[in-house]
């Protein structure tokens, strides 16, 4: 076995332990809590494609999570098809929709891109709240006929974990592949990448649409987990929360946001009962991470293990300066 595959056996063992744990007497409360955490882990991984891979800050990622929640809820309600199939169909519809939205949004850069994503997500949130006939408004959608396997808490616990594992391993492989390198090249120096024939808007648009599809899958699973759809799940707070998770986890490491997503969800839901001011500490930790740990959790640990492709911190000093520099040098 090559040295760089040494992590495979322990990971496989961990996965097996994870899956059989509920049958070995894991507490139903914890099983339920971890299920939610893993679903948020998927959501956080999807946002890493935005912040880590494209280097853009979007405040509207909750929209795609909500698209998954409401899309699956409405589809299952209307057709009574298999829930997992519905999740995949909704993700497949979300991808081109998101591509379209982002091709338009990507005409703007920096703070303007951040604002248009925020505005579009808020617009969708307001529509969902007001389209009472379709979405039930603030009362939400309840009584959704989920497939039986999602009603068994142990399966509900295993399915998102399997998906998260596939996504993390798959995305890390894609990140190292030719396509992944192109995405990173476009992020780090769009002008130079353009000279090699890679259109910035197209590359980022495709990445963002993949990210939205993953977020929709997370949303669909979240619907299965909650059993109902509420507009609050797609409020701006959800968008801020996933951003915090990815920053703390470390943008561009994929595994970091997965860990942070699970960890912060667990902390939030176990600590809110003991300290009411969990969000305050979260905010403080987040601000410190932005300042002192621009690579987040993903920047900790031996670099060779976690950062095989010479990661660049997108939040480093000087990040995002290349466009201006280029423009100035054009003037000379």
């Amino acid at each position: 076995m090559p040295r760089n595959r040494l992590w495979l056996p322990p990971l496989a063992l961990l996965a097996i332990l994870y899956v059989v744990w509920p049958w070995l007497g894991g507490s139903p409360f914890l099983v339920n809590l971890i299920t939610g955490g893993v679903i948020w882990g998927i959501f956080a991984v999807s946002y890493d494609l935005v912040l880590g891979w494209t280097g853009e800050i979007s405040f509207g990622h909750a929209l795609w999570f909500g698209a998954g929640i409401y899309g699956v809820a409405l589809l299952v309600q209307a057709t009574h098809i298999d829930t997992m199939l519905a999740i995949l169909i909704v993700a497949a519809i979300t991808a081109p929709l998101s591509f379209l939205v982002h091709i338009i949004s990507l005409r703007l850069r920096g703070a303007y891109f951040a604002m248009i994503t925020f505005a579009i997500a808020e617009f969708a949130y307001l529509l969902v709240q007001n389209a009472t006939a379709l979405t039930g408004g603030t009362n939400g959608l309840t009584g959704i006929m989920l497939s039986p396997y999602f009603l068994d808490p142990n399966f509900l616990y295993a399915i998102p974990a399997a998906l998260l594992l596939i996504f993390v391993l798959g995305l890390r492989a894609i990140g190292r592949s030719r396509s992944g390198r192109i995405v990173h090249a476009v992020r780090d120096n769009p002008t130079r990448a353009a000279l090699f024939g890679h259109n910035e808007v197209l590359v980022k648009g495709i990445t963002l649409s993949a990210s939205s599809a993953l977020a929709a899958i997370a949303g669909g699973l979240y619907l299965a987990y909650q059993g109902m759809a509420f507009p609050d799940a797609m409020s701006s707070n959800t968008g801020f929360m996933v951003l915090l998770m990815v920053v703390i986890g470390g943008a561009d490491s994929i595994w970091g946001p997965a860990v942070a997503g699970i960890g912060l969800y667990l902390l939030e839901n176990s600590l809110t009962s003991t300290t009411a001011h969990w969000s305050l500490w979260l905010g403080v930790v987040y601000v410190l991470v932005v300042r002192f740990l621009p690579n987040g959790l993903g920047g900790l640990g031996p670099r060779r293990l976690w950062a095989p492709r010479g990661q660049t911190a997108i939040l480093h000093e000087g990040a995002g300066q290349s466009r201006t520099k280029v423009r100035e040098s054009n003037l000379e």
Binding site: V287, E317, A319, G320
Partner: peptide
């Protein structure tokens, strides 16, 4: 100020400040 040359970091920090102040007032 420490993030002077890092507009992305400044944007993320101001979001954090908003959350902290909101939560502090709530507290």
């Amino acid at each position: 100020r420490p993030l002077y040359r890092n507009p992305g970091g400044q944007l993320l920090t101001t979001l954090g400040v908003m959350l902290i102040l909101t939560e502090a007032v709530n507290w």
